[in-house]
Amino acid sequence: MTKLLDIKNLRVEIPIQGGAVHAVRGVDLSIDRGETLCIVGESGSGKSMSSLAVMNLLPKGAHRSADRMSFLGTDLLRLSHRGMARIRGDRIGMIFQEPMTSLNPAYTIGNQLQEVYRRHRRAGRAAARDRAIELLELVGIPNAPLRLRQYPHQLSGGLRQRVMIAMSLMCEPDILIADEPTSALDVTVQVQILHLLKDLQTKLGIAVILITHDLGVVARTADRVAVVYAGQILETGTARQVFGTPRHPYTARLLDSMPIPGMMRLRRKLQAIPGTVPSLTNDFQGCAFAARCDRARPECRTTEVPLVREDGHGFACLHPETEARFAQKAGV
């Protein structure tokens, strides 16, 4: 079976004065129908840039390259702007973190929902309106006809994100790219939106690429996970592999830095990762995480670290961790 989306060795460079920011450095991604792929990383890790590169929505001047970037057999690298515009919003939908900035405040919800459908499907006003109402109901917004007449500012954050999801699903895309869809929402609303995404996925069979910094969201929703850092994938595998037995110290340290209820009963301090994400302007040698890693040895800073795979669990580390995390608890 062919992959829905298959990307090999994706690179994104953003020229700046006197050099370039290498935001994405050789990322491989693929996704099948009905699958949830989570890309997790901190800010500046290149997770958003990867998805923008797929959509050809990179900031002006940024350059993307890849050995392969195919969507259902179509080579996205060779596709014209027009061809891409036809796919974008139709075959590949996208939602962003802050629905307020992606919704146009000057137009009603209905107007914006219908525009997508009328443009891609050449549908009439009435059909588009019906479709919009159908989608709003699908994403759990009651009183849809009234909502269509409202402006974005009249809705709560959770509702706005539901509207964004509805909009991205207007044309029944094959892939939905969700870039931090719940980061601006309340925790209880976040759970509802994640449930919604899961439900829609089973109902419609779409593939979801979920980009987030929240390991909790990833662990609870992902089929497969890619942990990115400084524009590279450091660890990838199923959620169970990556979170159950994290092999890369970066994944392990990220897990340690999460405040988890109950942990405080031991009065344990949070394990912060010292330092910050490395500058992406220069090419570094060796492992990108070496400077912040407590397991780093001299060779980590000098030798190229390839991604090795064991049972589909890939990690780029010379001195991997072995400690199991939640595995023992699984029987409880």
Partner: peptide, 25 residues
């Protein structure tokens, strides 16, 4: 309780919590 359950711990065995909060905001 709902708030506490909605804290998503990175445990891949758990899945999404069922909050039972209904649809009203």
């Amino acid at each position: 309780r709902a708030l506490l359950e909605s804290v998503l711990t990175p445990d891949p065995e758990l899945g999404l919590p069922d909050l039972d909060l209904g649809r009203s905001f």
